[in-house]
Amino acid sequence: MNVTLTVNGELRSASVPPETTLLVLLREHFMLTGAKTGCDIGDCGACTVIVDGKAVNACLMLAAQADGRTVVTIEGLATREGLHPLQQVFEETGALQCGFCGPGVIMTAKALLDENPSPSTQEIRTALAGNLCRCTGYVKMIDGVHEAAKMLQSTETPALAAPQQR
């Protein structure tokens, strides 16, 4: 079957068998390997992408269900002008160790900040409950989300914020 969806601002199509998940579509057909296959049953969150503004497990959604929708993956965050504040902060604070959970965590955090520009620590914890990490731990990630929230609020065009001079 044919599916057509907007991925990171571009209209893309593929012909896939019906049992193809959104994760397989992104990774194997569109070569967007940022979303990871960790558990493949919606427990670990490594495959998190944003569909129509909501963070979802790409492994638990069929490609067919994403037809006609708008998907943002980790590859769609950085712009020509620079990194997304979450990417920048996570890099600076060492919130990415082995990095395998990173894209999922960043996408979940982005969906959170899009809806709630200044979340409390508890709100961040609740949002990240579905993203498992085995190396870094969650403290630096939570700090990072707070920091990114501040950066996003202090710039005029947040998504296009240039990396700050260090």
Binding site: G34, A35, I74, Q87, F90, E91, E92, C98, G102, P103
Partner: peptide, 14 residues
């Protein structure tokens, strides 16, 4: 800083 963390954050680490 981890040398590879930028790629991690961009989803570009292979």
């Amino acid at each position: 800083q981890r040398p590879d963390s930028r790629y991690h954050g961009l989803g570009l680490t292979r």
